[in-house]
Amino acid sequence: MDSLTEFVRSAPAPQRAGMRALIALARRPRGRALLARAGAADQLAQMLASLGRYDDPAVARALGWDAEAVVKRGRALRRAEGRP
């Protein structure tokens, strides 16, 4: 399961349904045109899209953020110092 799907699945039912609808609309040209006329919904759809896009490890790494390296360093520190 990709991280955006996991995020959407964890939401309360009303938000979950709304986000799924927005994601589905944003994937279609006619849906995007429809969203462009609805300011708040369009913003939310873009927010969701950008959450997924910039969480992509390759995209994030290009911006100087390497989640895997952060996790590795954390694990090594915890092991080395006997942290919980």
Binding site: F7, V8, S10, A11, L51, G52, D55, E68
Partner: peptide, 17 residues
Amino acid sequence: TARPPQMLARLYRDGGQ
């Protein structure tokens, strides 16, 4: 995982929403 969407889903009530 240091990845916000996953951690919101796993560590927050209602995925932080």
